[in-house]
Design a protein around this nucleic acid. Structure first.
Lengths: 193, 193
DNA sequence: CGGTAAGCGGGGACTGTCTCCGTTTAGTAC
DNA sequence: GTACTAAACGGAGACAGTCCCCGCTTACCG
């Protein structure tokens, strides 16, 4: 999995600086932060940026992949601490908070769960889907979550909740409220319309 | 409300052409269609476009205001034909379909319900909010919709459903399904978490 | 028909994306 | 240390989009 030949020292240095600067820039200005500007702030030419990260998506993903991994870990922590239904609810809450508070994460998580996205199969998508699957299946076994729903659909709906919440106040104040409406609707109730 | 002095004939002509072309362009290429390109296709200079519509938002709104009005009318039709809860559900369905199928409407409806948006107070926002309010209040009186929710929140949540649905397949195939989960969660049930 | 204000439109400044290729340099072999 | 080479750099420049400015045109009124 490691490079056949390890990266040259200067390349590694630039790569890391770019990642650091990019994470800041995306968090501050959103997914459309100027790439040339990121290159400039990292003290490299734009050529260097585009060589390491051929697309905006690639940079976005690389910049936040550690955060995504942290969410994966967090899912397992919650699974140990809480009963399945609550663990899922709390985890989704944390996902939504991340989505809204870190401008730039929204686009990343969005395309990670989008059908047919090229990102759906890469690290971020895999982590998120794996974590969701564990929590969702546990909750379904427990019987607090309806059976007829796929893990990825839960993730998409949570993304929808983030969107609604963002419209409401720009911060995440209404996430809890909207998310509880969603989990309400996801209970294995009688009516399925 | 009419202009103090009616528009000059050529101005009127250009205005109308721009609107027509813009509606097509936004529907085809989404909200980020090139404005200079719209001007070109309408056979006018870009100066003319920017004079009539100072911002992208302004053009977007003008291009789709009639569609929005149609949704307002539709709300009242449904209110006559169906019991309040079902009328609301069906109307939201039609709103979501419009949001997804007409690329460009999503941005418009989104900023119409966004908190603090400059569009929130203009024609589109007013129409949408008025229609929602009538349906929501009727459903609440009927008792099929929980009391502790604002009309605009319903609209924002529906926008969230559109987003989720868009992630799922790009078309609107999952709208009905996701929307029914939402209405499930919006019933005046016992649990409120 | 002539005067004039309303309206036109495209040139151009600016910002951002992304590529190409001549130049620099880290790592290696001796 | 020195010399070599492939890897990496970086910024100039082509392109696309936004938006303004201002000299020119024309619809309308008397």
């Amino acid at each position: 999995m490691a490079q056949v030949r390890p990266m040259r020292a200067d390349a590694r240095r630039n790569y890391d600086r770019l990642l650091k600067v990019a994470a800041e820039a995306f968090a501050e200005h959103g997914e459309n932060a100027s790439l040339d500007d990121i290159a400039k702030r990292a003290g490299v030419g734009s050529g260097t940026l585009y060589r390491h990260f051929p697309t905006r998506q690639a940079l976005l993903e690389a910049a936040y992949v550690d955060r995504i991994e942290a969410l994966g870990t967090r899912a397992d922590e919650l699974a140990k601490e809480l009963p399945p239904g609550e663990a899922l609810a709390e985890w989704l809450y944390e996902v939504c908070v991340g989505t809204i508070q870190v401008r730039g994460m929204k686009a990343l998580l969005g395309s990670a769960v989008a059908d047919g996205s090229n990102l759906a199969l890469t690290a971020c998508g895999t982590h998120m889907k794996g974590a969701t699957q564990r929590l969702v299946e546990a909750a379904q076994r427990e019987g607090t979550l309806r059976q007829d729903i796929e893990p990825i659909e839960v993730l998409r709906l949570a993304h929808g909740v983030s969107t609604a919440s963002e419209l409401a106040d720009g911060q995440g104040k209404s996430i809890r409220r909207y998310l509880s409406l969603l989990t309400n609707g996801l209970r294995p109730a009688a009516g399925s319309e």
